[in-house]
Amino acid sequence: MKITSNRRTSVVENIKVISITRSAVFQIGDSVELNPRSFVYAVQREVPVYFPGEGDFAQLELFQERIPRPTVTEDVRTTFINENPNIYVDSIRVLGLGGSSILQVGSNCSVDTESKVINIRQFIDQDLDDHTYMPTQYKKSNS
């Protein structure tokens, strides 16, 4: 990919980022392409017990579907005149970066981000007798 020379210089005096998770990118400097992807299957249980081999991305429709992207067909001739070749920012403070998000100080050619999240919460029905998968320490005593 072609890197155009018509790029400004970014000047940021002070940056503070507390946390970066789930395919997030914190880029200082120029780059050509950034394509972060994150697929999250979050399962929260009232009783925190999880089994090996549980969950399958292939069986979940959301993770198989493609998110549609716009196709550029218009013929647009762009011209950029950078009278001031610098971009100044005094300070940036970010508490959290996550889910394929990007914080970049610098220029790039293209960015393509994607994040998919499924959230599931499971609660125990206390009236049910079927506690096949419940570990003994969590089972209610019948006394």
């Binding site: 400004r8 992207r69 998000s101 970049q104 790039n108 981000t113």
Partner: peptide
Amino acid sequence: GLTGSSVLLVGDTEHITSGSA
């Protein structure tokens, strides 16, 4: 917070495509 495919850019770019589900 910056989440769900969001972008904060201090600089120049040509294309940005973001998708979130």
